[in-house]
């Protein structure tokens, strides 16, 4: 298995942390993984993206031109990266703020109203976790227990209550695949 994923959106949408969570979980599961951020001014509010490779084999190039999956959290990201996704790949669209549809017909499109779901859960910040839930459900790349384990380690002490919220966000994201 080898996944080359681009996750892109506005700074503050948690795109970097979606990537980090994927890599962390993959490493927990014994896979090889790399995370490369686009860094610089975009970190401070503009468009940000990161490139993630998950693989059973050691990772050669950590950067790539053609992703197997694109997670587009905003419209500029969809416009920029849609043409590069490999045929048969998957594009995840944050349909809460992207009204446009995926134009290509040789890729799978998954629409996830991340922000709307996060709002319903009462915390806008978990919108990226909703997307992560959708990604995992769609690709089967990682196990849900791994993510839960990771969240338990991440949120400790007074923050422990956030584990359930985040798990709920993952579940709701996964449900978007059912329709």
């Amino acid at each position: 298995m080898k996944k080359q994923i681009i996750i892109s959106g506005f700074g503050g949408q948690g795109v970097m942390s979606i990537g980090k969570s994927l890599v962390e979980a993959a490493v927990d599961e014994g896979m090889h993984a790399t995370w490369v951020p686009s860094y610089g001014p975009e970190m401070r509010g503009g468009t940000a993206n990161c490139s993630v490779v998950l693989s059973d084999e050691p990772v050669g190039s950590p950067v790539f031109t053609y992703p197997t999956e694109l997670i587009a959290m905003n419209l500029p990201s969809l416009t920029k990266f849609e043409p590069n996704v490999v045929a048969g790949g998957t594009i995840f669209v944050n349909s809460s703020i992207i009204s446009q549809k995926v134009e290509r017909t040789d890729v799978r499109a998954v629409y996830v109203p991340c922000d709307a779901i996060a709002d319903q859960l009462g915390n806008k910040k978990v919108s990226n976790m909703v997307m992560l839930g959708a990604y995992i459900a769609a690709t089967g790349a990682l196990k849900e227990e791994t993510i839960r384990h990771m969240l338990v380690e991440m949120f400790t002490g007074p923050k422990a209550k956030l584990v359930e919220l985040n798990m709920k966000a993952l579940e709701e994201g996964a449900k978007c695949l059912e329709g």
Partner: peptide, 10 residues
Amino acid sequence: DGMIGQMMEP
């Protein structure tokens, strides 16, 4: 190079 500084891997 900046890539080695900024990227993450196990």
